[in-house]
């Protein structure tokens, strides 16, 4: 189990490095999709089968497809980035800050004590009881939020039409 986890970690690191370095945004989106697939396997190993399924359905099936749609609508300019125009102005400073942050995070992670909890899978039924029991009003709040998002996107789009 630990060996499989380490393998997933290496895969994830490689894919995320690919996302950072790939020149074509479309390729980067596909690399993120692969990384999220790896993450779904990790969720399953962590005893969250429902979340693993939702990761594939929601992230791979909906969110990354949204990205692909946006790329299609934005045209070829959004995809290709020449080597010169890929990085921001003053990126070496940002890279320095990131390096310091990486060292700090590695030092923190090094101090995490080994917690040998046995993993009990939380079944979808138990998750459903929690979702519609103690967290019922939070679920309703999320539903209202999603409705507001639909209205917001419609308003943004309507403004676009008026502009023409």
């Amino acid at each position: 189990m630990i060996a499989l986890g380490l393998l997933l970690l290496v895969l994830l690191a490689g894919l995320l490095l690919g996302v950072l370095l790939l020149r074509d945004t479309l390729h980067a989106v596909v690399a993120v999709a692969a990384a999220l697939g790896v993450l779904a396997i990790l969720f399953y190993l962590l005893g969250a089968p429902f979340l693993a399924a939702m990761e594939i359905l929601l992230y791979l099936g909906a969110i990354l497809v949204l990205f692909l749609f946006a790329l299609m609508l934005l045209g070829p300019e959004a995809r290709a980035a020449s080597a010169k125009r890929r990085w921001r102005h003053g990126w070496p400073w940002a890279a320095l800050v990131l390096l310091a942050l990486a060292l700090a995070l590695a030092a923190l992670l090094w101090q995490v004590p080994v917690i040998d909890e046995p993993i009990q899978a939380i079944t979808p039924a138990r998750l459903g009881h929690a979702l519609f029991g103690p967290s019922l009003w939070w679920s309703e709040a999320v539903a209202v939020l999603l409705f507001v998002v639909i209205a917001a996107v419609l308003v943004l789009h309507a403004g676009e039409d008026k502009h023409d």
Binding site: G5, L6, L9, L39, L45, A106, V112, I115, E117
Partner: peptide
């Protein structure tokens, strides 16, 4: 396994 999850979160 928790440590691996935390390492994955750090990477992400």
């Amino acid at each position: 396994m928790i440590e691996i999850a935390l390492a994955a979160a750090t990477l992400l």
